[in-house]
Every structure is written in C-alpha cells, then in structure tokens.
C-alpha cells in the first residue's frame, strides 16, 4: 500500500513538473546553472573513478588470462566492452546517484522545511516544476557527455596501467580497443545514461519535495533518495539490458 502511495504521488508530482513553465527564460537560465552544478561539478570524481576503474579492469583481465591461445589484445577488448557496456553508464550513475541525488534531496528538502517552497507556491509558482524541471533537463543533457568522458578515461586508465606495467603492449591494447567494435554498444550505453539521468534527478527531487519536519528529516530524505535511486538504477539497468541486448 505504501509503495502504491509513493508511486502515485511520484507520478502526480512528475505531471506537475512537466506542466507548462511560468517563464521559459528563468527555467532556461536555471537549467544552465544546473548543468554547471551537476555536470562540471561531477567531472573530478568521475575522472578519478573512471581512471582507476579502467586500470583495475585491465589488470584483472590480464591476470585471468592464463591460456596462450587467448590473444593479448583481449585485455583491451574486454576493458572496452566492460567500460562501455556497464561500468561507465551504470557505476558512474550509481556514484552520481550518491553525489547529485543527496545534493538534490537535501537542497529541496531544506527549502521545504524552511517554508521556501511554500513561499514559491504563495507567489503562484509551480514549485515542483520550478525546482525540479531544470535539474532533470540539465542531467538529461549533460550526463551523456559525462559518460562519454568516463568511457574515454576508463579506457585511458587501462592503457596507462597496461603500458606502465607491461601487461600488454600499447599496440595490442589499442588493437583490442578497436577490435569488433559495434557502434550500437555506445547507443545502448547512452540510452541507459539518459534513463538513469532521469532516475537520479527525479527520485531525489521527489524525496526532497515531500520532506516533513526538520533537519533530521532532511538527512533521512537524502539517505532515502540515494537508496531508492540506486535500487531504481539497478532495476532499470536490468530491464533495459533485457530489452535492448537480447
């Protein structure tokens, strides 16, 4: 019953979020601000995670290849497939669910408990749309660029470790990266990214928007937002993989 209630309220909120904005100019301006805040602000953490992720995949793949019949370029191939298909879109989405999700939930939750959302409503502004729509649009637009950036850095991290440790040569690694490349894999990863971008902005916004109480509840909303958006990412990841790859 509780789940049905939350689903119902979430979809009602989304209906309000996507209703006609009061003033397009303000929404556009806010969307650009959110792109900087959500996108540029996440570049550092994405870079660190992606570089190390690519490096670890490369080492693990190399250490698991015992047979001399398996060519060395498999290390580059496996790194590419792992990074493009799963690690960049999904793991980075989970990381962003923690970073962006908690930020959105606590920001909107604080505005709720300090009556700033009531103030918006009193001014005749659709507060759900004003606070949430720019974040969703910004994430939908900027996250694919973040994920492409993560893919590049992941493969680059693998190359650094491959070359510096001598696991495989640079040429073998790069050959592996190019071997049997299917452009649809990128499409698949970007479709996932866009859906995850919606999840990691809308679910925390929902939890923040319906916060009741004080500082303690803002913290709880923030935690709930991260937990539920992470679960939603995993479920959606499975469903999209089933739909798009099989």
């Amino acid at each position: 019953m509780n789940i049905v209630f939350h689903f119902g309220r979430y979809f009602i909120m989304m209906y309000r979020v996507f209703s006609k904005p009061e003033k397009f100019g303000i929404y556009r301006e806010n969307t650009f601000k959110e792109m900087i805040s959500l996108g540029i602000g996440s570049m550092g953490i994405v870079a660190i995670i992606s570089l190390f992720m690519g490096a670890v995949i490369t080492i693990q793949t190399a250490s698991n290849i015992d047979s001399p019949w398996i060519p060395s370029y498999t290390v580059g191939f496996t790194t590419r497939q792992s990074v493009i298909l799963e690690f960049s879109p999904t793991i980075i989405a989970l990381i962003l669910a923690g970073k962006i999700g908690s930020n959105i939930a606590s920001e909107i939750g604080t505005m709720r408990v300090t009556e700033q959302i009531d103030a918006l409503e009193i001014m005749g502004i659709n507060s759900a749309s004003y606070l949430t729509l720019p974040k969703i649009i910004a994430a939908l637009f900027i996250n694919p660029f973040i994920i492409i950036y993560s893919m590049f850095l992941g493969m680059f991290g693998g190359w650094i470790v491959a070359v510096s440790t001598g696991i495989v040569t640079s040429n073998q690694y790069i050959y592996g990266l190019q071997y049997d490349f299917k452009p649809f894999d990128i499409t698949y990863a970007l479709i996932k990214t866009v859906v995850f971008a919606f999840v990691i902005t809308s679910i925390p916004a929902y939890h923040g928007y319906y916060t009741r109480g004080g500082a303690l509840e803002v913290g709880r909303s923030s935690t709930r937002a991260v937990v539920y958006s992470s679960i939603a990412i995993l479920v959606v990841n499975y469903l999209l993989t089933q739909l798009l790859l099989i």
């Binding site: 604080t110 505005m111 300090t114 009556e115 700033q116 103030a119 009193i122 001014m123 005749g124 659709n126």
Partner: peptide
Amino acid sequence: KRREIRRELGMLFQASALFD
C-alpha cells in the same frame, strides 16, 4: 486560477522563508 489569485497576495513567513 488559484495561482492567479496568489499573484495578488504577499506572505511573510514565520522564519521569513527567504531564498538562501
């Protein structure tokens, strides 16, 4: 229509509710 009415009113909140 409610939003139209609300544009005719101003409210001072207990904790001021200024946008931080």
